[in-house]
Each structure stands twice: as C-alpha cells, then as structure tokens.
Nucleic acid binder design. Structure first.
Lengths: 201, 201
DNA sequence: AAACTATACGGAACATTGTTCCGTTTGTCG
DNA sequence: CGACAAACGGAACAATGTTCCGTATAGTTT
C-alpha cells in the first residue's frame, strides 16, 4: 500500500490527535462555519491550539482535509454527467450539484472568494480539481458545436461558484436565474467579436 | 436650501474633523483597501479613534461616504447609456463601466460580497442604487424583444459584480469572457423552457 | 524494567484589530 | 469672561490568530 515508509512512523498519540482535530473541525465547521475560531475547534477536540497548528498550519489545510472527499465526489459527478448526457444538459445538472456542494458548507463560499491569503489555496485546489473534470464537458460541447469553444473550464467553474454564492448570502434560489442565463449564453452565440451574425456557415 | 435647520449647528471642530476623517479614509482606502485598520485612518486624520466612530459608527458608513459620488455617477451612466443605445449594447458598455468602478477600489469587491454584517449595508445600497437605473435598460430590452424579460436588475447587477470580482482577485481581464457569456445569455434565449422565438411583436 | 530521547503536547504570551467609555478639552453663547 | 454642552482622545477591554517553550510521554535501547 505504502510505496515506502517515508522515514519514521508517527507517534500513536499524534495520530489520535490528528484524527480528533479533523473530527472536531468537521463538527465546528458545520455549526459555526469554516471561519470558526481555532480555540473552538481545539476545545471540541480536547486539544491545545498548538496541536492544531502543528497538524494543520493553515486554516485552508483543515478545510481541505474536511472537504476533500466531497470535492472529489463533485468532480466525479462532472465526469459521469459528461459521459452520460449531452454537454449542455450535463452542465446544467452539474451546476445543480455544485450548488449543493457550496450551499451546504457554512462560510465556505465567503472563504473561497475572500482573497484572504489564509484561504488562498482554496480556490486553487477546489476550482482546479473541478475544472479539470468539467473541461471534458466543454470539449465535447465544442466538438459537437453545442457550446461555444472559447470558454475555459477554470473560468466557468469560478463564475458558477460566484453566482451560486449569491443565494448563499441572500435568499435561496436567488442565483438560479443568473446561472441559467450564464449557461444559456454558453450554449448560444459563438460570439465573434462585433455584433451578432446569426449564422456564419 | 435646507428645508429646515434641524435644531442646532454642529461645532466647527466637529465639522473639520468629519471632513478630515473622510479625506484620510479616501487616501487610506486607496493604498490599503477599504478594510484598513481604524487606527490607520485615525492617525492619517490626526484624530482619535473615538472621533471616527462618532462620525461613522459602521465601517460601511465610511465606505459609503467615500464612494457615494462615484456610485451615483455609475448609476447615471446606466441611465445615459440606456437612453442613447440599444439595450444589449447599453448593457455591454455599462458592464465595462461597472468593472472600472469595482476594480479601482481596493478591497471593495471583497467587502461587497463578504457576508460580514459590518459590510451588510453595502450590497443593499450599492446594488440597489445601480439596479434602479439598470432596470430601465432591461425594460427597454424586454419591450423590443432583444433581452429576456425574466431577469431582475438587482440580480443582474449582483451577478455582474460577482463576475467582475474574478479579475479583481486574479489576473485582470479574467472575468471578461464570462461577463460576455452572461450578457449573451441575456440577449439569447427568451424562454426558460422553450427554444428561442425571434420576434414577439 | 528502567533509562533515555526525540516527538508531541498544552496553553501562556504576544500581536493585531474592533469597539467602548469616560475624564478632559474646547467651541459657542449669554 | 464664565458656564455648559458638545466633542475629543486614547486607554482599556475583548476577540482572535499565531508563536514558543517548559513539560509530558511514546517508543526505543540497555
């Protein structure tokens, strides 16, 4: 399983504590958001704050550890939908999936788009992982002419995440219309440069 | 001019200080962002922190005071463009204007979408003021059939602001494509469920 | 089993920032 | 000029992130 035991084994209490912190973080994130005070997580895990910083030097490390599984699952969903559905529909369904992913994580959308250096790894990892799977849908759409070919998956995923954040902050459902407008725009005009020219071929 | 001098005149030093704080905030916002520490603004204005809180109890009050003019100018631009150009083009040009407004204010986009209660009045005021003028463009577009009629100005402005934030955080220009996709979607399919119907009148 | 050592721990201590509050200063007016 | 209300300044407090080191202990060696 391990390709090689790197150098040393971790101490048993350290392993226990790492797990306890992860568990506590999961609970605290759920009820107070991903920006909850370190001390709150430490108390929940019955651990000193030092232990948290030793295991997860950055807040983003902890967030990633907690949500990594769900991230991968959401990325896999893109892969699956892309294989099973026409590109435009796959995107629509996946946007719904992404919405659930973002909406169910208190404070996550805000952290993702905060620009705060403490959270900087989040967009890189999350949007990167998702985009790498969404790209296939866009490629398929570009190939069969149903989606405009000039949009990168990274940009699309980021745009969707931002639009979805609208309903996270305000009333639920408020972002639905704009998401649908965006996806329509993606399916619609190939967008030359100047005005619209209904057909070029 | 004044409909009525309310009750009392403000003390001369108070007037001076209010102005000094506003001036200092303008400078500090420009170089450190709208989330700069109060103490920094106080030092710049040569004033105690108490004076700032007395004049501007909430951070959002200070931000609003500093940018109110530019906000109104941006709203007026929507009005003017709506009167002078076809709806779709007016929106495209105005989105450009909005981009400049947002991009030139360090930390503003983050504050606007932070969800932080300290900044809560910002989206209400800024998006509200802008939306009230953008609505006319959407109405015109709905009337002549060039824009889908099911999008509220509030939602559109918020969506544009969020997309624009992408280039504020990352490389400049990164949001351009997605903004254009969104606007294309707005001009494209009028019906949520059915296909497109070129003319209704 | 005891001694030893590297690892990990806990949490006090420090730094930053928002916010309040009150003793002091000062503008205004009679 | 004196009295009073308005405004001031900044010390003080609270919340939070982060570091650091004396102490405890798991794992190892004898």
């Amino acid at each position: 399983m391990d390709v090689e035991a790197p150098v040393k084994r971790k101490r048993a209490d350290a392993v226990r504590n790492t797990a306890a912190v992860l568990e506590a973080a999961k609970a605290v994130f759920a009820e107070s958001g991903v920006d909850a005070p370190v001390r709150e997580i430490a108390a929940r895990a019955e651990v000193g704050v030092g232990t948290i910083y030793r295991n997860y030097p950055q807040r983003s490390d902890l967030i990633i550890a907690v949500f990594r599984h769900e991230l991968d699952a959401t990325a896999d969903a893109a892969e699956r939908l892309g294989a099973e559905r026409p590109p435009a529909e796959a995107l629509r369904l996946w946007a719904e999936r992404l919405r659930r992913f973002v909406e169910t994580k208190r404070g996550f959308a805000a952290a993702l788009h905060s620009g705060d250096p403490a959270y900087a790894p989040l967009p890189r990892l999350f949007l990167g992982v998702l985009a790498s799977k969404v790209q296939a849908i866009l490629d398929a759409g570009a190939a069969d002419g149903t989606l405009r070919p000039d949009v990168r998956a990274e940009d699309l995923v980021e745009a969707l995440a931002r639009l979805i954040s609208i309903s996270v902050d305000g009333e639920p459902g408020r972002s639905d219309t704009m998401v649908s407008v965006l996806l329509d725009g993606l399916a619609g005009p190939p967008a030359p440069t100047a005005q619209q020219q209904p057909r070029t071929d």
